[in-house]
Amino acid sequence: MAEPLFSVRGLKVALPDMTRKPLIGRAPLAEILKGLDFDLPKGSVTGIVGESGSGKSTLGRALVRLLEPSAGSIGFEGRDISRLSEGELRPLRRDLQMIFQDPMSSLNPRHTIFNIIAAPLRQNGLGDRLKERVAEALQRVGLPQNFASRYRHELSGGQRQRVGIARALALSPKFVLADEIVSGLDVSTQAQILTLLEKLAAEMGLTVAFISHDLSVIRRLCQQVIVMREGRIVEASATDALFDNPQETYTRDLLAAIPLPEIDPDWLRPKAPA
């Protein structure tokens, strides 16, 4: 396997737990990620799965350093970025990009699509040839050039998500985090977005972390899979190995819970008591 782009050791994240916040004073910290170790090889697409609340998004947000870990290290190209300050992170930002789940709320309603895609370029010293670069980004995700002057409410859900991808890839980053980017879209649009991402990731040699709770999508897209539960890694392996021979019952349950478009009268029967 290629050398890792990310090399994460003992990663812990604790966040204030607002449900237990006393009337006065700070909310107690709740440990969301409880010590994770894994590598993301360069140029690979890694799926992160797990049920709701298992900490997938938290992990993703720690990787792109929207969150500061409470313990452990995040090696990015051999350098620990887990403690860098906002200022020290700035030069790294162009390499660590993200595509959001909700294409609506991730686009500012008051900026045109042009401005939305141009902003990261300007901010990262790519402000020259701005028009050209934005046009290129739009073309890459298959949007017509005249969309540049539109606002987000003038786009469909699938088109909005393409803008999200265009914005993330405009900087030619090394890493992209995709957090549930298709769960709000219908299957046809979903398939368009996924094939697009697959194609672009291969073309640009991107390293991608793809968060989803849909294992069917993960199987198609990813070379390796990390299965999470309650802030821990349950199982991590190459995709085919995981699907052909899941080691953990939790993984098997997750797989069995996916409704395949096939008739199976037994699927809804309660499991026979062991």
Partner: peptide, 20 residues
């Protein structure tokens, strides 16, 4: 909103995000 987070990803500082 996510676009605020997205601006952080783009490398904007706090003041920049507030204004933009």
């Amino acid at each position: 909103m996510d676009y605020v987070e997205s601006a952080r990803i783009a490398g904007y500082g706090r003041i920049g995000i507030m204004l933009r």
